[in-house]
Each structure stands twice: as structure tokens, then as C-alpha cells.
């Protein structure tokens, strides 16, 4: 007699497996999506951006990326880099910005991050 596959259980198991795989994947990547890393780092950052040699104001930066120009983020800093990078390669392709982000992780100063990558 064929075994009846329970869709509910299979769906649940797939979702749990994805999370386990993301936990493993996080060991090889700076980003921390869907892998349960809440408040694993405290990142103080400040974003500076110019478009066509015009420096963007904090409000313009907030409007462009929907993140504060300056703040503390308890997610991995890679998430902020991903947001900027994704914006510049998609929505902002026609008016590209040059971005520099100064940041520290857990109080330790890190080398500034730039977009476009040099």
C-alpha cells in the first residue's frame, strides 16, 4: 500500500531544513540571513554618498536606501553593504552613487567600505 505523503509535515520539514542549511552557510559568508544571529554584533556606521558630484544629505540617503545615514545596527554589517550594493545595481543604476561607509563592529574600528568596489 503506498504511503500517504503528508503535505503539512513535508512543508514544515523543508522549512526547518532550509534554516539548518542557512546556519551552515553562514559559516562561509559574512551575511546572516535566516540563520538565527540576532544581536550577534553591534555595528555603528555612517554612510556618505555622492551622486553626480552632489553630496547627499542624511534625508536623501534615508530616502534612497531606506536606512538611516548614521546609526547602530545589531544585524551583520554585511546586510547594510548588501542593501547599498543591491540598490546601486538595480533601482539606482541610472543615477549611480559613490558611497563610502565608515563603521565599527563591537566598538572596534574597521576599514571603510566603498561602492563601487575598487
Amino acid at each position: 500500500m503506498p504511503t500517504k505523503i503528508n503535505i503539512r509535515i513535508v512543508t514544515g520539514v523543508i522549512l526547518l531544513t532550509v534554516q539548518v542549511l542557512m546556519v551552515i552557510y553562514a559559516r562561509f559568508d559574512e551575511a546572516r540571513y535566516f540563520c538565527w544571529a540576532p544581536h550577534d554584533s553591534q555595528n555603528e556606521y555612517a554612510i556618505f554618498a555622492t551622486v553626480n558630484d552632489q553630496t547627499l544629505t542624511p534625508d536623501q540617503i534615508q530616502k534612497r536606501y531606506r536606512i538611516k545615514q548614521k546609526g547602530i545596527d545589531p544585524r551583520a554589517i554585511q546586510h547594510i553593504k548588501d542593501i547599498i550594493e543591491r540598490y546601486e545595481t538595480t533601482y539606482g543604476k541610472d543615477s549611480p552613487a559613490e558611497v563610502i561607509m565608515h563603521y565599527s563592529t563591537n566598538g572596534i574600528e574597521k576599514p571603510s567600505w566603498r561602492w563601487p568596489k575598487t
Binding site: 526547518l16 540563520c35 538565527w36 550577534d40
Partner: peptide, 25 residues
């Protein structure tokens, strides 16, 4: 999985190993 994932992520973070995270926070 939530706890296991959180534990594994912290275990491999140097700032959690040295206590720097809590000190700064």
C-alpha cells in the same frame, strides 16, 4: 533550531569569545 543556530553563530564570533561584544554593548 533557533537556539542551536544562535549558539553556533556566537561560538565562531571572535568578539563573543573574548567578551568584547558584551563589554561594548
Amino acid at each position: 533550531i533557533l537556539y542551536l543556530g544562535a549558539g553556533i553563530n556566537k561560538l565562531f564570533e571572535p568578539d563573543w569569545q573574548t567578551g568584547q561584544y558584551f563589554e561594548h554593548w
